[in-house]
Design a binder for these strands. Sequence first.
RNA 1: GGGGACGUAGUUCAGUUGGUUAGAACGCUGCCCUGUCACGGCAGAGGCCGCGGGUUCGAGUCCCGUCGUCCCCGCCA
Length: 609
Amino acid sequence: MCGALRASDAGKKAVLMGWVNRRRDLGSIIFIDLRDRTGVTQVVFNRENSAAHDKAEQLRNEFVIAVIGTVKLRDKDTVNKNIATGEVELIVEELRILNDSKQLPFLPGDTVLPNEEMRLKYRYIDLRRDAMQFNIETRHKVSKAIRDYLSSQGFFEIETPFMTRSTPEGARDYLVPSRVQPGSFYALPQSPQMFKQILMISGFDKYFQIVRCFRDEDFRADRQAEFTQIDLEMTYPRVETVWGVVEGFLTAAFKAAGVDIKTPFPRMSYDEAIRKYGNDKPDMRLPAMVDIREALTPEELEELTTKFRMRKEFPVQLIRIPHAGDISGTERRTIGTYGAYNHVQGPAFVQLMTDPKRFAKDYAALSEKVAAFAKVEADDLWLLAGAANKPENAAVMDQDVQHFCEKCGFLRLDLAQKYASKHKAFEKIGDVAKDYRFLWVSDFPMFDWEKEEKAWMPAHHPFTTLHEEDFAKLEANIDSARDPKSPLGEIRALAYDVVLNGTELGSGSIRIHRQDVQRKIFQALGMSDEEAKARFGFFLEALEYGTPPHGGIALGLDRIVMILTGAESLREVIPFPKTARAVDLMVDAPSPATEKQLKELGLLIKKAT
RNA sequence: GGGGACGUAGUUCAGUUGGUUAGAACGCUGCCCUGUCACGGCAGAGGCCGCGGGUUCGAGUCCCGUCGUCCCCGCCA
């Protein structure tokens, strides 16, 4: 292989096959960098071998060739330290051109990348690039390590159907029309949720699957129409049992990629995550926000909130960007301008104090106290965010503390992005403990209030169980599905997320295994028996036949590999990804169906007007 | 559904307050070159300035629309 030859191979005969990565034609001597998956070797055509040399003059970029020759140790001054095979070269005796190539839209060996549209259209060329080969290799190693680990722990990998029916995941389904039953559709699974629970009922007490899932929503850098999950489920687990399994296979997966992570991961409640980070998937590489109210006397708080027109019954969050250094006055004034950043949009119900220098001048004692309380360091950039005190604006006054914290959390992230080159928290430094900040977030709310539906909906999915001590609260408020003020919002689920560097890697829960509890949840959701039966009848029936307690989790394989390879988007770690509009630019999918296909399926296309 | 960025040789980009023949680098073609490794030198080919409309004496540049790509909000456990 092109990456295999070493100094110890000198003198041996060798056959290499690969692509012409680059040619350097010096007249009587021609150098070709020959490339395959394993690397690059320099092959040499001398004039002495005129047959091979003459043929080599025809070689162009990305021709596929075979060369037979002798491995030669390079002279000391011609060694190339940049490549693994740099100590040797192959002196060619015979050249065979296995295939030519017309001019390519871009070259795998190019130093500048073409834009993504081009890369996706000619994905087969893009995938030849070193970086993509590395990403796909890492992906293979990671999934193999996970398979091996889970198998060693007694898990069976079991396949579940792709052509199935809608599951209660909340996202839009991709539908597949049935030919034999016109008018009926299969749904592609958003996750194998109900099947894996059925497998628990079926006695396969430890299941996993590395499985494709499909969601028809809008896409982002970290969201694709089809993506791969490491899905698992087990019987009789406590929350910690599931966490242990996940920590185990992640350790194996990261080790396969050369990273030794430490377990157990830190833990945090959903409540704390929102309060301190304004986010349910906190990026622990950045400092938490600090509510500075408790550092102040009531008089000081009054003074501060009056001065900056903040509401004192809301947190006053100190947001700190480490080592941002001095920034200009203009920058300080525009720092909280809405729309200036990616995340923060909408009405300004966050009131900012963005000029700590001036604050220190006007209120020296107060400023010092606040900075000390939040452990601000000398070259940190910091600002205070409070809830805007504008009684004339009802929309602003209507917001709750959680919403306020989330806005602050967005601001925290936007600022961190803006000053990334200064604090360098997003750059990998080779210190595993700082490069990979894992976190378990638990005790998610059981129900979310959905404004559009004007009802409480499951925050996770309706098969998630709740904290035992919150059971009374559920029973007391079981008929308040349409009351936005209902204490249903306070009920905590036995649900958890695993988070890495601000990315949600996976989400899971302990499930409901008793039919009576399940019925109560549906009742609390305002769902009638008939409706529940129509949607999940088969599943509810299965629950009645001796269902063991069970729970599990699913993690995004693509996201894991993305973070491990340092990729900026999922598209870098998925061989054939789709664009933000869910188009595959290489095969040009989706595409219209033919009249014949539509007729067979009993479908009529309503023309867009 | 909404906000933002972008679209100019094969590719990556530059193109000034609207002004003559739209440039560079890499790639491509030909020639020269025996130690290069992002080889070098000389010569050359290559453009519906995304598409459609408008303003103007004149549009790559200004305006409107449209298509496409990317990032974000909403949405998505």
